[in-house]
Write a protein that binds this DNA or RNA. Structure first.
Lengths: 222, 222
DNA sequence: CGCGGCATCCGTAAAAGTACGGATGCCCCA
DNA sequence: TGGGGCATCCGTACTTTTACGGATGCCGCG
């Protein structure tokens, strides 16, 4: 076994489910080069602990109650700039992968990836690399080729900020009228956004949009 | 340590997330009286293994892709009648708790309960008892008092089988017309069910119904 | 500067959903 | 056997959503 004495990876574990934390701890128990220095069960706690501990790597569950994972990631970056953020989630979500990697996450692994992959990811990001689970990297690559050679094609999308807002509202069960009031634009404008969203996502029902928004973490289930 | 030699609890672990299975294994590693004799990552596999192993207890994740947890529970009962089913899930869902306990589950624990509670639950159901996490038992009790002294009040509900079907379809993004075709009833009937559902649940938007259905596990996110 | 993307606005029409009001037959159970 | 709950059906009216067609002004980028 090669392990350079003082290079233990200091890991902060953020997940609202104890059993998941246990799973990670178990997978990491035999890895002598990884040291779980803290745990948090929600975003606020995570930020506090990150500030105090400034861990090497933060394994961050994306689907948590209250503070959304994206929000947490944003704040964690400033709370502990040197920590590498490794996103950890249940669902394969294109938008999520893209957004969180734009927010500076160094990797993305799924809860149904093998524990060994999670370990690999932790080691990779700690060494300054990146690690995206195949399903996640697929999205990154697609986005990348699109961004580089952006002639024609174009059939790809990305919702605007306002469209995300509207989508969030739709999935929360608001009507166009209510959304208009909330966002302080005309109801007709909301309708237009609605149509654009459906076009871009190619989803034509509220139920579908709602499920999409939940997958994306735009709204919580509770 | 008291442990009567031959009374190890033979446990079958059913969860689609490796990390969760690891978590359970870790929590159970020190418990010498529990023996994980098998694992499954989906309903079909679970049924196969249950048949072969006929474990004492089946720890069953409810929110799994493909075969719904309820469906799996139903089939597990006949696949391995002697196994005690312990439901294991993320979300606090009244309807789910009630339905799965009606299906014969002997307990209900959440993924954010402490691992120690999960262990307690396993031991309890194995001894022929029941174990419902406080949040789950709350629903059971409420239902119980309602069932016993059923004078007045009545404001409580329970969707009919058909209504559940309609709800599932709605949340899947089907229109009333499509649902009618699928369930082979008139579109107008579907509308009526729709209204009854909304009344009973006091949810008046498709988005709300969709979120409810996802919480209940009637539809999956994918 | 021009061009493309975005946010904002508008009209119209058809489709779908929501909200009332009713009805019938079935089956279980007191 | 009678009442209650359920599934099924119906009409009518209103609201909302979906889909199509447009428009303007702003801003960044080559």
């Amino acid at each position: 076994m090669k392990d350079r004495a003082h290079s233990k990876i200091r890991l902060l574990l953020v997940d609202d489910h104890p059993v998941v934390r246990e799973g990670i701890k178990f997978s990491l128990a035999k890895k002598r080069n990884i040291d779980i220095v803290g745990e948090a069960s929600d975003g606020k706690q995570a930020i506090r602990k990150a500030k105090k501990l400034s861990p090497d790597v933060i394994l961050l569950d994306i689907n948590m109650p209250r503070v959304s994972g994206l929000e947490a990631a944003r704040r964690l970056r400033s709370a502990s700039p040197k920590s590498k953020i490794l996103a950890f989630t249940m669902h394969d979500s294109k938008e999520y992968v893209l957004r969180i990697s734009r927010l500076g996450a160094k990797g993305y692994v799924f809860k149904d990836d093998s524990p060994a992959d999670v370990v690999r990811a932790i080691e990779a990001v700690h060494k300054g690399g990146v690690y995206f689970s195949p399903r996640a990297s697929k999205h990154i690559l697609k986005e990348y080729v699109r961004a580089t050679m952006n002639t024609e094609d174009s059939t790809i999308l990305g919702l605007s900020q306002q469209e995300y807002e509207v989508l969030r509202c739709i999935a929360s069960g608001l009507s166009s009228k209510e959304i208009a009031a909330q966002l302080k634009v005309s109801a007709r404008t909301v309708d237009t956004h609605r149509e654009h969203i459906m076009e871009k996502l190619d989803i034509r029902t509220v139920a579908g949009l709602t499920r999409y928004a939940i997958r994306e973490g735009l709204v919580t289930l509770e």
